[in-house]
C-alpha cells in the first residue's frame, strides 16, 4: 500500500514539476510581448528595457524560472498587469467557487447514476434499462454550453425558479448561495450522470455473471445485499477511472457556467485574462488548476486501493 502510494506520489511530484515548467515557458517562450501589454505598443524602447529589468525578464531563463518557482512556493504568483490585483487573491476567491460547483454536481451525478445502474443492470435490455440507457445517451450529447442556455431559458427566464445570473458567497447567505448554484451545477451534471451510469452499468453486468455472485445467492443473501455488498465494489473500477477522466470535462464545464451565469470563479477570471492578454493571471490559474487536477487523479489512485485490495498487494 505505502509503496504503491509512494510511487504514485512521486509521479504526482514529477508531473507537477513538468506543469510548472510548461506554465513558466508559456509566458516566456510563446510569442507575445508583456511590455507591450503594460505600456501599450507605442512606448519607447528605453522604457521597455527598464520595465524588462524591473520584471526580471532580462535574466537567463533558468534563473528566471528558479526565482519564479521560489516566489510560487511563497504563495506569490505575481500580480495582474492590468489592475495590480494579486494572482493569489484571484485564486483564493475563485477556487472555492469552482470546488463548490464540482462537488455539488458530482454529488448529484453519483446520487442519480449509481442507484439507476444498480436497478437496470439486473435486467439488461429490458424496458427500464432501454429507457435509462437511451436517456443517458441523450445526456452525453448535452455538454454544458448546450444545456445551460436551455436550463436558463426554462427555469430562470420562463419559470423564475432560480436566478439567471449572480453569485452570493456561502458565508454571506448559505441559502441563496445554494439556490444560485443549483442551475450551474445541474448544467455540468448531465454529462457526468451519463458517463458514470454507462460505465457502472456495463461493469455491473459483467460482475453479475461472476461465480461469486451465484455463490452469494446460494448463501441466501438478499438481492439488495448482493447488489450493494458483493457486486457494487468490484464494479467500480471503470467508474473511478471515468471520474478521473471526467474531471477535465468538469473543469471546462465550470468555465462555461461561470461565464454564462456571471459567477466570479476561476474560469470567469481566466477568460477575462485571456481576452485582455493578462499573462500572469493566465499562468497562475493554469498552474493551479492543472496541479489541482493532478492531485485529484492522485486521490482517485488512492481510491483504487480502497476498492480493491489486490491493487497494492496482488
Amino acid at each position: 500500500m505505502a509503496k504503491y502510494l509512494l510511487r504514485r506520489f512521486i509521479q504526482l511530484v514529477v508531473v507537477s514539476f513538468i506543469i510548472s515548467v510548461l506554465a513558466f515557458l508559456l509566458v516566456h517562450l510563446l510569442p507575445g510581448d508583456p511590455t507591450a501589454v503594460i505600456l501599450g505598443p507605442n512606448d519607447t524602447p528605453q522604457n521597455k528595457a527598464i520595465l524588462l529589468h524591473q520584471l526580471g525578464l532580462n535574466k537567463p531563463l533558468w534563473n528566471q524560472y528558479t526565482i519564479w518557482l521560489t516566489a510560487v512556493f511563497h504563495g506569490n504568483l505575481g500580480q495582474s498587469y492590468l489592475n495590480r490585483e494579486s494572482v493569489t487573491h484571484i485564486l483564493a476567491t475563485g477556487f472555492p467557487i469552482d470546488l463548490e460547483l464540482i462537488i455539488i454536481s458530482q454529488v448529484i451525478a453519483f446520487a442519480v447514476a449509481i442507484p439507476l445502474a444498480l436497478v437496470t443492470s439486473r435486467r439488461p435490455n429490458r424496458p427500464v434499462d432501454n429507457v435509462a440507457t437511451t436517456g443517458t445517451f441523450g445526456m452525453l450529447a448535452l455538454p454544458p454550453f448546450v444545456i445551460a442556455p436551455i436550463l436558463v431559458a426554462v427555469f430562470a427566464v420562463g419559470l423564475h425558479w432560480f436566478p439567471a445570473t449572480g453569485y452570493v458567497p456561502f458565508s454571506q447567505n448559505p441559502a441563496s448561495n445554494i439556490h444560485g448554484m443549483i442551475l450551474p451545477s445541474l448544467a455540468i451534471t448531465a454529462g457526468s450522470i451519463a458517463v458514470y451510469y454507462r460505465l457502472l452499468r456495463s461493469d455491473l453486468i459483467s460482475t453479475l455473471q461472476e461465480d461469486f455472485i451465484t455463490m452469494a445467492r446460494s448463501k441466501g443473501l438478499s438481492s439488495r445485499f448482493i447488489m450493494w455488498r458483493h457486486a457494487f465494489r468490484p464494479s467500480t473500477f471503470s467508474l473511478l477511472a471515468g471520474a478521473g477522466v471526467n474531471i477535465g470535462a468538469l473543469i471546462a464545464g465550470t468555465f462555461i457556467v461561470e461565464y454564462l451565469f456571471a459567477i466570479n470563479g476561476l474560469g470567469y477570471s481566466l477568460v477575462a485574462a485571456v481576452n485582455q492578454r493578462d499573462y500572469l493571471v493566465v499562468q497562475g490559474i493554469s498552474l493551479v488548476v492543472a496541479i489541482a487536477y493532478v492531485v485529484i487523479q492522485f486521490f482517485i489512485d488512492f481510491l483504487f486501493t480502497v476498492v480493491d485490495p489486490r491493487v497494492t498487494r496482488g
Binding site: 506543469i19 508559456l26 509566458v27 499573462y279 493566465v282 492543472a290 487536477y293
Partner: peptide
C-alpha cells in the same frame, strides 16, 4: 501519460491566449 495528466481545456485556453 504525462500529456494526459494535464486538463486539456486549461492547456488549450492558455495556448489560445498566447498564440
Amino acid at each position: 501519460f504525462v500529456l494526459l495528466a494535464f486538463p486539456a481545456i486549461v492547456a488549450v485556453i492558455a495556448i489560445v491566449a498566447f498564440w
